[in-house]
């Protein structure tokens, strides 16, 4: 096991109250595994990854739980110890490609800084490696583009630069927050392909954050569905697409546009909106939008139940004697 997140709870203390952006979530990632986290905007995906990286900004803080990376709790580490891991063993691609690069530094200097912080190599070798990484992520004429400033590049290019930077020290775990959102479909496929190759070559694990279920079905081994800071379903990618359990997951899957769909039916949409984090519905947080909502759902919070590795947080199901029964 490479990473074990145990009962992680991340809060934002605001004047109007405390937002629990990540609410008691647990999951693991093995070496070489690609785990996807999906969920609508505001479900706590980015906050989860920032918590792992130790990069939360005030007023956010990890309020409880453990983040064990190779059996060491990152959350208990000093900043100094964390710095040895960040950018080296764990690296991250951020969701915001337009603003995540330093506007006054050349591309190459930003990537070389990462390399030279963690690898004991000469400037010349670091530059060679930088150009090689830029080539790997599909930047044409990488040796020249390395001298560019971020403003001279498009969003897709910048996202690839971020990817090159994140991969520059052969991390064991890559946290990729919407790594393909800014890219067109061909580049998207290239980047996913690249992550795949890195996984094959270095046994790199990936925490792949996305709201694109197409990407999930193509790339991931296992999927976590998050809603309002909680895990509502977790399964390997085949079971999830073959047999989604949670009404939220069902809704997400139904709202994917199908190319071969000939009917004139309008695309399905989950009714309602994500609730205000300061004003959550009582009971199950999805209850106010759920088509199968029962009396009980508005009173009690369902527990995450597991059967044969498929986990779901819903009163529709009951784990009994090794089987998951539909009520």
């Amino acid at each position: 096991m490479l990473l074990e997140v145990k009962n992680l709870r991340t809060e934002f203390k605001l004047k109007r109250g405390t937002v629990t952006a990540v609410d008691d979530i647990s999951f693991t990632i093995d070496k070489g595994e690609i785990l996807a986290i999906v969920g609508e905007s505001g479900s706590g995906k980015s906050v989860t990854s920032l918590s792992i990286m130790g990069l939360l900004q005030k007023p956010g803080r990890v309020a409880g739980g453990e983040i064990n990376f190779k059996s060491q709790d990152l959350n208990k580490m000093s900043q100094k110890e964390l710095q040895k891991i960040r950018g080296n063993q764990i690296s991250m691609i951020f969701q915001e490609p337009m603003t995540s690069l330093n506007p006054v530094w050349r591309i190459k200097d930003q990537i070389m800084e990462n390399i030279m912080t963690h690898m004991n190599i000469s400037k010349k070798d670091a530059l060679a490696r930088t150009v090689e990484m830029l080539d790997t992520v599909g930047i044409p004429s990488p040796a020249e583009r390395a001298n560019d400033y971020p403003h001279q590049m498009s969003g897709g290019m910048r996202q690839r630069v971020m990817t090159a930077m994140a991969l520059s020290c052969d991390p064991e775990l890559l946290i990729a927050d919407e790594p393909t959102t800014a890219l067109d479909v061909t580049i998207q496929a290239q980047i996913l392909e690249l992550l795949y190759r890195m996984r094959e070559k270095f046994n790199m694990a990936v925490l792949l954050i996305t709201h694109d279920l197409g990407v999930v079905s193509e790339a991931a081994d296992r999927v976590i569905v998050m809603y309002c800071g909680k895990i509502v379903e977790e399964a390997d990618v085949k079971s999830l697409f073959a047999q989604p359990l949670h009404p939220y997951t069902v809704g997400l899957l139904k709202s994917i546009p199908q190319i071969d769909d000939e009917s004139d039916e309008r695309l399905y949409m989950i009714k309602g909106m994500v609730p205000n984090p300061l004003n959550m519905p009582s009971g199950c947080s999805f209850s106010d939008r759920c088509d199968s909502c029962m009396d009980r759902c508005t009173k009690e919070v369902p527990k995450l139940q597991e059967i044969n590795g498929h986990k779901v947080r819903c009163f529709l199901y009951e784990a009994k004697e090794g089987e998951l029964n539909v009520k």
Binding site: Q83, G87, F94, S100, L101, V104, W105, T117, M162, M165
Partner: peptide, 29 residues
């Protein structure tokens, strides 16, 4: 508060370097 400062921190460089090399260089303009 900028995103690129978070990126700099994510590289594992020291906080002194984050402020001196990344933040100050932009903040002084």
């Amino acid at each position: 508060q900028q995103d690129y400062i978070r990126t700099a921190r994510a590289k594992g460089i020291s906080e002194g370097r984050v402020i001196g090399k990344h933040a100050l260089r932009n903040g002084l303009i």
